[in-house]
Design a protein around this nucleic acid. Sequence first.
DNA 1: GGCAATAATATCGCACACGACATAAAACAA
DNA 2: TTGTTTTATGTCGTGTGCGATATTATTGCC
Lengths: 155, 155
Amino acid sequence: MSQALVDTVPPQLQLENQLCFPLYAASRMITRLYQDKLTPLGLTYPQYIVMMILWERAPCAVKVVSEHAMLNTNTLTPLLKRLEQQGFIRRSRSVDDERVVMLHLTELGRGLRDDCECVPQALLNKLAVSENDIVQLRDLLSRLLPILSAGVNDD
Amino acid sequence: MSQALVDTVPPQLQLENQLCFPLYAASRMITRLYQDKLTPLGLTYPQYIVMMILWERAPCAVKVVSEHAMLNTNTLTPLLKRLEQQGFIRRSRSVDDERVVMLHLTELGRGLRDDCECVPQALLNKLAVSENDIVQLRDLLSRLLPILSAGVNDD
DNA sequence: GGCAATAATATCGCACACGACATAAAACAA
DNA sequence: TTGTTTTATGTCGTGTGCGATATTATTGCC
């Protein structure tokens, strides 16, 4: 019945032929899977991304996190305030340049890293996806990301 | 300085080695790119996904859209109300089963499909990614999606 | 028929995302 | 130095996403 309609939809607008949809859906599914592991640690998924950046780079400016996470400050500022309230980080204006807000890890925030170490492997185990597929997908996406990012900023 | 910290972060927690981050970032970049094309048509990106499903399947129940978009009703209900307010769809309780809300396309909603036909190609042109990469990525994600989806629902 | 279990949709609260715009400090130019 | 521009961060409003829970209608079981 309504299935017959499919034939009249141009192929480039059929969900199955889109790149955008599986990307969007897969991203949300991964987020949900991570969330199960992160909630007990007191983190949301975007907060986890930000903490990964801070474990590598703190103390650093908000702008550094913004660039690496590809998130604007209007998203980051409230998120960072929540991380501060939880006691994972400290925010302070730079003395050199009063515009810059520096982010520092607290002891609690540094300790959180140990709790997160097992998270990626736990997910891989749960999913039973071949290592090969993961690597292939990661490399494809990593290659695509700069192109997408460039596309967003011009025009 | 802070760069030296990188060496102390276990490799599975370095952003570069994660699958989750490029997936998350790429999905947001794609959304932003689509949004530029969709805003003039009066659609958000998730609304566009829902409309694609409706072009193929309307009239159909909310549940059908929910399953195909992999979105819960707590996300869909407000989104569908907005689509109705814009005049793209009509919502009505089924007479057979009073629990079911049926979704119908209006003339305006059906017409919108023609305006959207050029959107996917416009993006492909803009991005200059090889056709091969796109196909490979789409197929990988499509293969991964059922596994992720299954992982979300059990345990 | 009566009544528990199930199903479809909705409400609520919280945390993103992001466009548009605001603010304040630093850099730069005339 | 003084006015303009740029930079870093922030606020505001709208629209998702989703866990937890509520509501109403149907189904199934005795």
